[in-house]
Design a binder for these strands. Structure first.
Length: 367
DNA sequence: AAACGCCGCAACCGCCGAGGT
DNA sequence: AACCTCGGCGGTTGCGGCGTT
C-alpha cells in the first residue's frame, strides 16, 4: 500500500496562487514563522495543502529571494557546480544566495542546457559532443570564406583520438561529402600544397603509421559510407584523399573540453571539487578574425580556460593544468555584464567554436 | 484579427530519508 | 522493528505570454 497523501486533497485549491493567498501566507509566517506545514493552511485559513504552501514560500514568497535575470557570474557558477554536482539543484542553490533550487533548475533547462547543446557540449557530462555541434555553421563559415581552414578543422576533428565518443557520425560524413564536392568543383583550390605545419604533418604521419589505398572516385566514397564500415581512421584517410596535405591532425590546435574525469579524481569530496572545478572544463578557441579573444573576467571560469593571447591553445598545457589551482570559485574580478541573452550567447559561443586562428594559417598563401 | 506554435516559469507529483513514537 | 509525519528533492506538467503566420 502506498503512502497516504500529505493531506486531504478534497476541496483544496490547486494551481496558481492569488495575491490574497500570498498575503495570507506571508502574514501567517511573519507572525508564527515557517514550519508545521501540515497544519499551517488550516491555521492560516488557506484552502491549500501544506506542501503547496511550503513550496510557495520557499520558491517565491521568501523575503531573501533574489528575483530577476541571472548574472553572468551566477550562470558561470551554475555551470561550474553542475559539472561536478550534476542535477543537485539544492546543493547548487546553496551556493547561490537568493536563488532557489527550482529557479536554478528552470534556468538550466530553459537556457543553459540549450546553449551547451548548441555549442556541442553534452549538458549532462559537460564533455564535447561532435554529434551535437552545429556543423553546418562551421561549414558555412569556413567553406565560403576559408575552405582551407574548414578542411583543417575537419582534419583535426577526424583525427581526435582522445575522445571516448565516436567522432564520425552521419553529419560528419555529410560534411565530408560536401567538401569532396567542393574539391571536384574547385580542383585548383584543393590541389595546392599549402605547405603549412610541415613538422606537425610529419609527426602526425609517424603517429598514424597507416597506409590506406587511395580512393579512386566519389562513388567509392559513397559506397564506403553506405556500407556502414566507416571508422575514424577511414575518415582520416578520406581527408587525405580530399587532398589536405599541409593540414595536419594538429592536436594542439584542437580545442577540447576536458571531461570531469580528466581533471578531478573521483575520490575528491564536493568541497575539493569546488576548487577543482575552477579549472578548465572547456578550452576556448580564438576567433578567426584576428581578434585576440574575449577578455574573460580575471579568475573567472572562462579565464581559466588557459586562453593565450598568442592564439596558442595548447591541449597539452590544458592537460597539465593542476586541478588544485587556487582559482576562487566566485570571481571577485570584474566581468562582462551582458545585458541580453543574445549577447551572452554570442559571447559564450565565441570561445567554444572549433575554429582555427588565422594567425597560424596564412590565407594569402592559399589564395 | 485570429489561429497556431513555442517558450519560460510556477506549481505539482512522486519518491526518499530523517526523526519521532 | 515498524509505522508515521515531515521536509526536501528532482522530474514533470500545464498555463500564460509572446511571436509568427
Amino acid at each position: 500500500m502506498g503512502r497516504a497523501p500529505c493531506c486531504d486533497k478534497n476541496g483544496l485549491k490547486k494551481g496558481p496562487w492569488t495575491t490574497e493567498e500570498d498575503a495570507m501566507l506571508v502574514n501567517y509566517i511573519q507572525k508564527h514563522g515557517p514550519g508545521n506545514w501540515r497544519n499551517l493552511p488550516k491555521n492560516a485559513g488557506l484552502q491549500r495543502c501544506g506542501k503547496s504552501c511550503r513550496l510557495r514560500w520557499t520558491n517565491y514568497l521568501r523575503p531573501d529571494i533574489k528575483r530577476g535575470r541571472f548574472s553572468f557570474e551566477e550562470e558561470e557558477t551554475i555551470i561550474q557546480l553542475h559539472s561536478i554536482l550534476g542535477n543537485k539543484w539544492s546543493a547548487i542553490a546553496a551556493r547561490l544566495p537568493g536563488r532557489t533550487d527550482n529557479e536554478i533548475k528552470n534556468y538550466w533547462n530553459t537556457h543553459i542546457r540549450k546553449r551547451l547543446l548548441r555549442m556541442g557540449i553534452d549538458p549532462v557530462t559537460h564533455a564535447p559532443r561532435i554529434d551535437l555541434l552545429d556543423l553546418s555553421s562551421i561549414l558555412s563559415s569556413y567553406v565560403c570564406n576559408n575552405p582551407a581552414a574548414a578542411l583543417l578543422n575537419l582534419s583535426n576533428l577526424l583525427n581526435s583520438t582522445h575522445q571516448q565518443q565516436p567522432l564520425v557520425n552521419p553529419e560528419m560524413l555529410r560534411l565530408a561529402t560536401s567538401l569532396l564536392s567542393i574539391k571536384q568543383a574547385n580542383p585548383e583550390m584543393c590541389s595546392q600544397n599549402y605547405n603549412l605545419h610541415q613538422n606537425q604533418i610529419s609527426n602526425s604521419q609517424e603517429q598514424n603509421n597507416q597506409v590506406l589505398p587511395p580512393l579512386q572516385s566519389n562513388d567509392q566514397f559513397q559506397n564506403l559510407i553506405q556500407g556502414g564500415d566507416f571508422s575514424a581512421d577511414m575518415a582520416k584517410h578520406l581527408m587525405q584523399q580530399i587532398n589536405v596535405e599541409g593540414f595536419s591532425p594538429n592536436m594542439t590546435n584542437l580545442s577540447c573540453p576536458l571531461s570531469q574525469e580528466n581533471i578531478v579524481p573521483p575520490n575528491l569530496s564536493a568541497d575539493h571539487h569546488q576548487t577543482a572545478v575552477s579549472q578548465a572544463n572547456y578550452v576556448p578557441c580564438s576567433t578567426t578574425s584576428g581578434n585576440p579573444g574575449p577578455d574573460f573576467p580575471e579568475n573567472s571560469y572562462f579565464q581559466s580556460f588557459n586562453y593565450n593571447k598568442n592564439h596558442d591553445f595548447s591541449f597539452d598545457s590544458v592537460m597539465s593544468t593542476p586541478y588544485s589551482s587556487p582559482t576562487p570559485l566566485n570571481s571577485s574580478g570584474t566581468y562582462i555584464n551582458s545585458s541580453t541573452e543574445d549577447e551572452k550567447e554570442s559571447y559564450c559561443s565565441s570561445w567554444l567554436k572549433f575554429e582555427i586562428p588565422e594567425s597560424t594559417l596564412d590565407i594569402s598563401d592559399i589564395m
